[in-house]
């Protein structure tokens, strides 16, 4: 077992459309991608978002680029025009995922 925060092995970017948050997560090193793909599931992402997520999560995979794309519906507290969160776009939410621990052993 070698537990690391996802930020140690991956980078991410968050985007928003209305009340939908999308976050892409990319392995720095292809060798970590299989562990990410196995552990960073839709359930994992839903758990990380906690009460933020009032909808569902869909994950898309880009194997040849070693990336995962998570789409969270009803996850921005109303979106930038309705949210009372200081970060109504959810720009900071990529770090919710990057702050999670995963087992990075090969």
């Amino acid at each position: 077992m070698s537990k690391v925060t996802l930020r140690e092995i991956a980078h991410a970017r968050a985007g928003d459309k209305g009340n939908i948050s999308s976050i892409s997560v990319w392995a720095y090193d292809p060798k970590h991608y299989p562990a990410m793909k196995a552990q960073c599931t839709e359930d994992w992402a839903a758990q990380a978002f906690g009460r933020l997520l009032e909808g569902s999560v869909k994950r898309y995979t880009l194997d040849h680029l070693h990336g995962l794309n998570f789409v969270f519906t009803n996850a921005l507290e109303g979106g930038v025009n309705g949210s009372l969160n200081l970060d109504g776009h959810g720009k900071s939410f990529s770090y919710i995922l990057l702050g999670q621990e995963i087992d990075a052993s090969e």
């Binding site: 991410a12 985007g15 928003d16 939908i20 892409s24 990319w26 789409v71």
Partner: peptide, 16 residues
């Protein structure tokens, strides 16, 4: 490649 990958899926849902 990292800046390009992050931007390619920025605000994209289904990459297809």
């Amino acid at each position: 490649t990292r800046t390009v990958k992050e931007q390619m899926l920025y605000e994209v849902h289904d990459p297809e």
